[in-house]
């Protein structure tokens, strides 16, 4: 089941200009993610976690190396092609939820489907189903300002999942949640990962998230210093 590679980064580098200097955010990162992963990029602030997620989500471009997302190399991909790829295959979950405040919960979740041009009746069914997955059917008509932090993040998950993406990129999804809500949200994600085979890639330094991860990748100063899957493979190879 976990055979097909969805994201493959080779010698990925990213530097940002800061005044006269160049700050290195990623340096020679080699990583690949396969279908159905529940993986996390772990590390302190400034280690390059969010930068990697931005590049993997085609929101940013690398300054060196290359990355292939769902079989499409990022170099040379136009804005339009990148947007189309995001629209079809990638869902985002943010630390601050980023729900559109003037729309209801239903409308927030409906938005990605509108971009896909899905017919109204199909759209309606898909939104109700997504709300059911995350357990907030009763809040469909509420505005984001009427929701708690946990409920808001559930709506964000529903929005990311409604189009049935292959990959969900979650940037510090529990940073603004208390422990109880964090666990609820993470359990929802685990359930979706198992039932729908959607890959979840987190950037986090939250221990609560880390304990749910099936694969843990540690970053430090833009480099991968530990990858639990690579360790396991190595261990397996040694045993054989």
């Amino acid at each position: 089941m976990q055979d097909s590679v969805q994201i493959e980064a080779r010698h990925l580098c990213k530097t940002f200009p800061m005044g006269q200097q160049q700050v290195v955010a990623l340096e020679q990162v080699n990583l690949s993610f396969r279908e159905g992963e529940f993986a996390g990029l772990v590390g302190p602030s400034g280690s390059g976690k969010t930068t990697f997620l931005n590049i993997a989500g085609l929101l940013d471009v690398p300054t060196g190396g290359n990355i292939t997302v769902m079989g499409q190399p990022s170099d040379g991909a136009s804005h339009k092609a990148a947007a189309a790829l995001r629209n079809r295959h990638i869902g985002f979950i943010f630390q601050t939820f980023n729900l559109l405040p003037v729309y209801t919960v239903f409308e927030n979740v409906e938005f990605p489907l509108l971009l896909q041009g899905m017919p109204k009746s199909q759209r309606k069914d898909a939104v109700w189903q997504a709300l059911e997955w995350v357990g907030i059917l009763d809040k469909a008509k509420a505005r984001p300002s009427q929701l708690s932090g946990g409920q808001s993040q559930r709506v964000a998950i529903a929005r990311a999942m409604v189009k049935r993406p292959a990959i969900v990129l979650a940037d510090e999804p529990t940073a603004n949640l208390d422990a109880k809500n964090s666990h609820n949200v993470l359990q929802t994600m685990v359930k979706l990962n198992e039932e729908l085979k959607t890959s979840f890639i987190f950037s986090t330094h939250d221990e609560k998230v880390i304990q749910y991860l099936k694969r843990k990748i540690s970053l430090e100063d833009g480099r991968v210093v530990e990858d639990s899957e690579a360790e396991a493979r190595k261990h397996e190879a040694e045993l054989q």
Binding site: L59, L85, N98
Partner: peptide
Amino acid sequence: YGEIGVRLATGEDKGH
């Protein structure tokens, strides 16, 4: 800008 960022992330292209 916030709303724009979300819309771009959701897959809306810049031209649209």
